[in-house]
Design a protein around this nucleic acid. Structure first.
Lengths: 213, 213
DNA sequence: TATAAATCTTAACCCAGATCAATGAAAAAT
DNA sequence: ATTTTTCATTGATCTGGGTTAAGATTTATA
């Protein structure tokens, strides 16, 4: 029976703990224990869902490993909002905060392991662990900044710029995600992305022939 | 001289205080006094700026009265992100949090009065006033939800739907903001919005002639 | 009230990306 | 190794909104 205790401390929470220690270097061991007690590990097989449209998203989840996409379904078609890989938070935070049904799907693109904290437990932590409010604030700020960067890019950059920036910033996307999903995350069809890329390739060829490179 | 003290308590902070009391019914008078000491009132004339692109946004501001628009400048043209009127928070929160230069302008569309709290003072409050972390968290959450609603609408609704929803939700916009700004906030030109509206009007006429209404 | 300035509407033309369809290439499954 | 399935590319055509430009209407100001 004690073995369960040992199993729980085999490191499933290590990533998250490191994350918190970085934010709050002087969080007490007591506080951490209270937090650890409400954490739950969940594994999600490739193709399964972390969140489904229509259900209230009851968790904020820390990605231990794996990869997920978050998307809307618009006229039966996926419109990807973002990808999320290991060591980041994932949640339909809008649904989580408002307690309204999620408008998104969060789907595992690879076998994925996450650490859940439920809405109720988080509210409890806000009451019992003073540091939790700081963590909650920082999560909200971080989630805001992520979304904010997305809209800034959408407003100020051309699709080509957004594509190259995306790839430069997250080179692993090319290895782990098919191009049609990247297109979707840019808000265009795979055909359009293909054409944009070939246009660039053509221009480069012309330039180098005319000796401009 | 004491009169200044009296002048400061003529109610410039009443709106904000009510706002906080609503969030934290049992905040102590002491905590409030510490907060009140770092608040500063600022008036902004119509046409002047609360935030300019290129400057770090150093304040989160509560709108006492007035109306502002927040926008990007893209190829010399305004792309409005949002409007904000009395009794809401306004800030380039991205710049505020990251301490990077703002990418936006926040411009007063009417004579406006705001209550500023500076970044440094807010960090101080996070240290000294426990409740401040809750307020900070709730502000971050609220700002996130606002932006989040915006992107959801952009992804899931047609422009016409977004227009009618916008007007239904904020009817005062029609009175206080020219249509070309509303168009900009929908991401289209004034010409396009005009066309869309006349298309709808025409369809309605056809329907009522053929007796469908 | 008259005049100027700002705003809204309408029309003609253009273009980036959508849609539909066909072909190839690559990966997975058998 | 061979057959499927999935994914990427390319072409043809369509379309919503952009652009430009001209009036019309409203609002502001003398």
């Amino acid at each position: 029976m004690q073995q369960i205790g040992f199993m729980l401390s085999t490191g499933k929470f290590d990533n998250l703990r490191a994350f918190y220690k970085q934010i709050l270097p002087n969080m007490t061991e007591d506080s951490w224990m209270i937090i650890e007690n409400v954490l739950h590990v969940r594994t999600v097989k490739k193709g399964d869902f972390v969140v489904r449209e229509g259900n209230v998203c009851d968790y904020v989840s820390f990605m231990n490993y794996g990869l997920v996409s978050m998307y809307y379904l618009v006229n039966g078609k996926e419109r990807i909002i973002s990808f999320c890989n290991e060591h980041n938070y994932i949640s339909d935070y809008q649904s989580f905060l408002t307690r309204n049904p999620a408008l998104t799907f969060i789907e595992a693109l690879e076998d994925t392991e996450i650490v859940d904290i439920s809405y109720a437990d988080l509210q409890m932590l806000y009451q019992k662990v003073p540091e939790a409010n700081i963590i909650g604030r920082l999560i909200a700020e971080q989630v805001f900044l992520q979304m904010s960067e997305g809209s800034t890019a959408e407003a100020k950059e051309t699709i080509l710029e957004r594509y190259t920036n995306l790839i430069n910033k997250h080179p692993w996307l090319l290895q782990r995600v098919p191009q049609y999903m990247i297109a979707s995350s840019l808000g265009i069809t795979p055909e359009a992305l293909s054409r944009i890329k070939s246009r660039v390739a053509k221009q480069r060829r012309v330039k180098s022939i005319s000796g401009l490179t």
